[in-house]
Each structure stands twice: as C-alpha cells, then as structure tokens.
Design a protein around this nucleic acid. Structure first.
Lengths: 226, 226
DNA sequence: GCTAATATATGACATTTGTCATATAATTTT
DNA sequence: AAAATTATATGACAAATGTCATATATTAGC
C-alpha cells in the first residue's frame, strides 16, 4: 500500500489541506484500483459512497440525453477529485465517469471525507472552492453551447485539448479522443464533426492522421472562435 | 430596520442554519434596498463583496457572449441567495444579475458571511449543498442546450416557467419575460423564438396575448420535449 | 389621446446542421 | 494474413435555424 503523503492528488486537490494525521488515516482506508480505457468509475444514478482520486489518466463525465446520445460535460484528469458533488448533495451521481485512457485511482469512503468536513474547515473551504470552479466552468460551457456555432465550438475544443492535455514530441494532441467523443463534447453529430475537421485540414489549420490531430495554425484557429 | 428572524430568505436558503445570535448580528450589518425591473444587482467582472438575499422578485443571471448577445444562465427568485460563488472563489462575478421584476433585496457583507463559515459548520455544508445544486442544474441545462433542438428547449422552458413561477388566476404565466429574454434562455434568435411560439399557438398548445403566455395543453407540450 | 419608441410578428432567403447512404481506412479477431 | 468489425470520410439531400426586411401591435412619454 503506497503512502498518500507523496501522491500527486494531494498536490492539486483539496486534499492538500489535510493534516499529517488525516493523511495517515486516509492512507489506511483508501482502496487503489486500475481502470481500463472505456470502463466506468461510476454511472449516472449510482450511489458513489465516496470520492475518487485520479492518480493517472483522464476520464469523461457524461450524461445520457433523452434522445439516447451521451453528452460529455467535462474531462477530468490526473490530480483531481471525482464525485464530490454527489457526496455533498447526498444524491446519486448525475453524471457517469468513463475512462478515456487507462487510469489509476484511489477510492476514499464517504465516512472518511465527512470526518474531514467536520474537523477541518480548510478542507471544507477548499472543496467548496473546487465545486465553485466547476460551476463557473459549467456556466461558461453552457454559454458557448448556446451562443457559438459548431465550427467555433470545434475550434475552441481543439485549443482546449492542446492547452489542458498537452502535445507529444510530434506536436500531436496527447489526449486522443474519437471523432464521436469530440462530437459529444461540442454537442453535434459525429458526421458534422468529421466534416469540419476535414474542412480545418483543407484550410491548413490542423493535420489529421488516424486518431492523431495536430494543430498547425493556432492563431487562425483562435480567430475562428472570435 | 426589519428583523431578519422572520425573513422568507431564512426559510429557504442556507441562512436557516444560523443561530439566533448570528441572525441578530446579521440584522445589524445588512443593508436593504429596492431594485427596479431592468436594473442590475451586479454585473459580470464586478467585485460583489457580499451576498444578496432576495426578499421579493426575480432576477436573471446573464453572461455576455463573444458575439455580443446575452445568455440567460439561470433565473433566481424570492428566498434565494445570490453571489455565493463569487464570494467563495474570491473572484469577480462571472455573471450579471439583472432584475426582471421589481425586487426587494438585502445585502450582507462578505466579512459577516466569512464569519459564519468559520464558526458554523452547518452553514458551510448548507452553502456547499446549494452550490452543488446549482452545479447539477447547470450540467442539466448544458446537456439540454447541446442535445435538444430549439423547439424542444422552448417547450421545456415554458413548462419550467409555469412550474417554478406559477400562473395568475387566468392561467397565464406569472413571470412575464420578453420574447428576447425567452430566446436568451433557450439560446436562439429572437425571431426563431417568436416563430415557434406562433407555431405552438396555431397548434393549440398555448395562447398568446401581448406579453401574456398561457399554457393550454401541457401534456402535448411535454410530449414535444420527449 | 396622440406620437414616438419599442416589441412582436411574418415573409423571403441563406446558411448551418442533421440524416441516411455508401465508401474507404484502421483496428481487432480469428 | 485474411476476414470481420469498427472508425473515419464524403456525397446528397432535408430540416432546422439565422438574418434581414418589413409590417403590425403594444407600450411609454408627453
């Protein structure tokens, strides 16, 4: 059992506010596990009963729409906590969490987290800030979906992927999503997404090679967003 | 100066968790004011430095998009608190709050609220739940904007307005928004909104009379949403 | 009550986006 | 390596939505 003390998640999440004793206590009750690409950490409607720490990998938070299509609401990565909202609201998850890369996670049971809330005000405030950050991002995404057209949203998403998940040595995006997944982020049909990617390629903005996407002209791409 | 003890906002918001002493302290530092329809409580980018309690009236939370159009992200009404996110994140407001009806509000300064956070864990948890509720709603709205078409979103918004703000004796919606405001909720052009309202009217789903909108056939309207 | 200003309504048309069909490429299975 | 499966790509067309022009109704100011 590895010690939580040195974990990357402690560096970036609300867990940074825990005392040494609290970290020791958490180390004892956590459960580590590996999640393969495509597998779910939890699904919409499920009682999560705790929080996941993402040590490695990226997952998509999705919600099933009435028309049967999944909408990607958010991407969550290494260093972040998952399932806070559900725990605080004491409700089943309103989103599913599906790995888009192989992941390493730890599960911390609800009782442990509630203990931190009761005894450590800094932790409460830190989690609250994190949820507020999520709310702000959700509001921004919402406005983009409502006010920008599909081309603008695609350009924005490509830049978001480069800025937040980085590029390989060959400049291609590290996070390799399927066309369907990209379409599900921007809220459009897969065909429309593919068509616009082709259009961007013809215009020399990006390069496509299988799943690899490389941004060639970020400036022009940004100009599309406005 | 009226006493906060009996205020409607205490009944419905996180303020219900305050102790008697805390309420007395809050009564002393609050500032009551009247906001006319169309006036702003605060605007995007502004430092709010406190929280507003809505004693009466409804306001729209809007965000200016890059294309110059305002998007309504949320409607907030009597009994609710405003500006929590901004206070917790210690950031300027990311949304503007504009009265859509005459309002009566009280302003509670930041220092007072921070005191409650430090001394009253139930208050912290209650605010956290409220923000989590907002996050859940934002996620739902986001998915609707991405996956439903304009007609479905309009039908849904009409039902939302009836369910959440009620109707007059003549069954018309109590909250009278302009066509432009309705368009700004569903994220479409004002003309498209007007056209679809006409279509609903022709189909016998609603009745239009100036600003008055009356839902005639809620069942069929719900069927449109799916 | 009249005038001006604003909001609502509708037509005409262009553009965007979705859907279905089909082709090609990439990946997985055997 | 071949076959089968799945993902990506593209064409053709329909449907949805946006834009601009203009008409009519409603509201506000005098």
């Amino acid at each position: 059992m590895s010690n939580c003390e040195q974990c990357i998640v402690r560096e970036f999440s609300a867990l940074k506010t825990l005392t040494k004793d609290e970290v020791v206590s958490m180390s004892k009750c956590k459960t580590a596990s590996t999640i393969k690409k495509g597998e779910a950490l939890f699904v919409e409607g499920e009682n999560v009963n705790g929080v996941f720490c993402i040590k490695e990998g990226v997952c998509k938070m999705t919600k099933l729409s009435a028309n049967g299509k999944d909408q990607i609401v958010k991407l969550t990565q290494r260093g972040e906590l998952l399932g806070q909202r559900s725990l605080i609201s004491d409700e089943p998850a309103n989103l599913s969490a599906i790995a888009v890369e192989d992941m390493e996670v730890c599960f911390i049971p609800k009782s442990e987290i509630l203990g931190f809330f009761n005894n450590n005000n800094a932790f409460s405030m830190s989690v609250m800030k994190s949820v507020c950050g999520d709310l702000r991002e959700a509001d921004d995404t919402l406005v983009n979906l409502a006010q920008k057209n599909v081309k603008e949203r695609l350009a924005q998403t490509l830049i978001y992927l480069e800025d937040n998940f980085g590029v390989f040595e060959d400049k291609s995006l590290k996070l390799q999503l399927s066309r369907e997944e990209i379409a599900s982020i921007i809220g459009t049909a897969t065909e429309s997404c593919i068509r616009l990617l082709s259009e961007f390629k013809k215009a020399g903005l990006i390069e496509l090679q299988g799943k690899k996407i490389t941004i060639l002209d970020k400036v022009k791409l940004k100009r599309i967003i406005e």
